[in-house]
Structures are given as structure tokens and as C-alpha cells.
């Protein structure tokens, strides 16, 4: 067991775990942040997507030791209050069926929009191909990303 200081959603957390423990299980079991989901354990489904220093990462493939130096953002910390344009768009388009994959989808999409504020269908397909949706809500996910891009743009215009 080793102690790690993790920066998660802007807060500091100390955990005492085996260094190889995937960040996924530290979030879920130690920190009780269960929005990050377990789907496959081998980085194939994307349900566990979080951000490390703003970049999307598979928490199931990230040993906690290697995340200790990064700023970790999970779905719980994406906006804090559900007001991120993607969260609003997801509700507006009514994307979810079972909803299990959607936190991972949103985290991947958030990284996309931060790099590319106005993605094309092709950009979205390229970015989202690693995230499985077993209910196959793909058309709505794509629509919601476009909608979130619009909402974000409108938000910028209002602020400007």
C-alpha cells in the first residue's frame, strides 16, 4: 500500500492503495465517485473516461500512481451543477437510454469540444469511436455534440 495525493475535480484527496490500482477503482471504491463507470477493464468501451490535465484518459488503464501528478476531472466535476453545454444538450436531446455509458461519452465529447469547438460529423465520429453505447444511441450523441457546440458558442457570444 502507498499513499497518494490526488487532485480530483479541484479538491485534494489522500488515498492509501496498491500503486497498480487503476484510477477507476480508486475513484469508485475509495472516493465514492461512481459516475466513472466500469465496462470492460481493458480500455475498449470508454465508460471510464476521465480527463487527466484536460486530456481524455481511460481510468481503467491508468494506474493511480501515474495519475497522482495530474489534475483529474470526472463527470462529477465537469461542471459541478450539470450546466456544461454537453450536459444541457444531452438532456435537451434526451440522449440516454440506460445511461450507463453516457458519462464516458460526455467526457470524451468534452475533450473534443475543448480542442475543436465546431466539429463536423466526421470529427465527432473520429473522436467518439472508442466509446461504446450498448443501447446504440449514437445518432442522438452526435446530435447532442452539435447542439452543445451551438450552446457553447451562444454562451460565448452572451459573455462577449
Amino acid at each position: 500500500m502507498s499513499k497518494f495525493n490526488l487532485q480530483v475535480n479541484g479538491r485534494s484527496h489522500e488515498v492509501d492503495v496498491v500503486p497498480e490500482t487503476p484510477l477507476l477503482w480508486v475513484l469508485r471504491d475509495n472516493l465514492d465517485m461512481v459516475g466513472t463507470k466500469f465496462g470492460c477493464g481493458i480500455g475498449q468501451c470508454g465508460a471510464c473516461t476521465v480527463h487527466l490535465d484536460g486530456n481524455p484518459a481511460r481510468a481503467c488503464q491508468t494506474p493511480v500512481a501515474s495519475a497522482a501528478s495530474s489534475k483529474i476531472t470526472t463527470i462529477e466535476g465537469l461542471s459541478g451543477d450539470g450546466s456544461h453545454p454537453l450536459q444541457r444538450a444531452w438532456c435537451e436531446i434526451d440522449v440516454a437510454q440506460c445511461g450507463y455509458c453516457q458519462a464516458g461519452q460526455i467526457m470524451t465529447a468534452a475533450a473534443l469540444l475543448s480542442q475543436n469547438p465546431s466539429p463536423t460529423d466526421q470529427d465527432i465520429d473520429d473522436a467518439m469511436g472508442g466509446n461504446l453505447c450498448r443501447c446504440a444511441t449514437y445518432l442522438r450523441i452526435r446530435a447532442a455534440i452539435h447542439r452543445a457546440a451551438e450552446l457553447a458558442q451562444a454562451g460565448k457570444e452572451i459573455r462577449a
Binding site: V34, G35, K37, I75, E76, S79, G82, A96, Q102, A103
Partner: peptide, 19 residues
């Protein structure tokens, strides 16, 4: 068209599921 009643909790990662 009515959005799912759990949507706000789904998109914020609330503990809804069995796991």
C-alpha cells in the same frame, strides 16, 4: 417529447445503477 426523468442525474454521474 418528454426527456427522461433521470437525465439530469445521468449526465452528472449520480449513483443510480446497481454497481
Amino acid at each position: 417529447r418528454v426527456g427522461g426523468v433521470d437525465n439530469p442525474r445521468v449526465v452528472t454521474g449520480q449513483p443510480l445503477f446497481g454497481i
